[in-house]
């Protein structure tokens, strides 16, 4: 990982931490379910959700649906 990439990552994490602080200090907890009031829930959900989506797409789904580009025939011109 290059220096630049690391910097982007560090800045993102710092903003997340700041937003959690902001949430803890100024947001009055309210909502229908526990996860609406759970501090920093959204950051975790975003992190884990994104990981899950990528893993599901890249491992089981991909192995099922991936084909060569000319799978349907070069020009895709009907059934010939």
């Amino acid at each position: 990982m290059t220096e630049k990439n690391k910097r982007v990552l560090i800045v993102s994490v710092v903003i997340i931490v700041l937003s959690v602080l902001l949430e803890a200090l100024f947001v009055h907890p309210h909502g229908h379910y526990w996860y609406h009031t759970f501090l920093s829930f959204d950051a975790f959900f975003g992190f884990i959700g994104c990981l899950v989506l990528i893993l599901v797409a890249k491992i089981p789904v991909r192995s099922l649906v991936e084909r060569d580009e000319d799978y349907y025939g070069g020009g895709e011109n009907g059934n010939d």
Binding site: N5, V8, L9, S12, V13, I15, I16, S19, V20, L22, E23, V27, S40, F41, D42, A43, F44, F45, G46, F47, I48, G49, C50, L51, I54, K58, E66, R67, D68, E69, Y71, Y72
Partner: peptide
């Protein structure tokens, strides 16, 4: 704040896994 956190949480994963997300010439 929730939206910001959700976006950044996902972004961290995206940024780390970016090399894996490059597509290939497949359908």
């Amino acid at each position: 704040i929730s939206t910001l956190q959700l976006m950044l949480g996902a972004f961290v994963v995206f940024w780390v896994l970016l090399p894996k997300l490059h597509t290939h010439d497949v359908i």
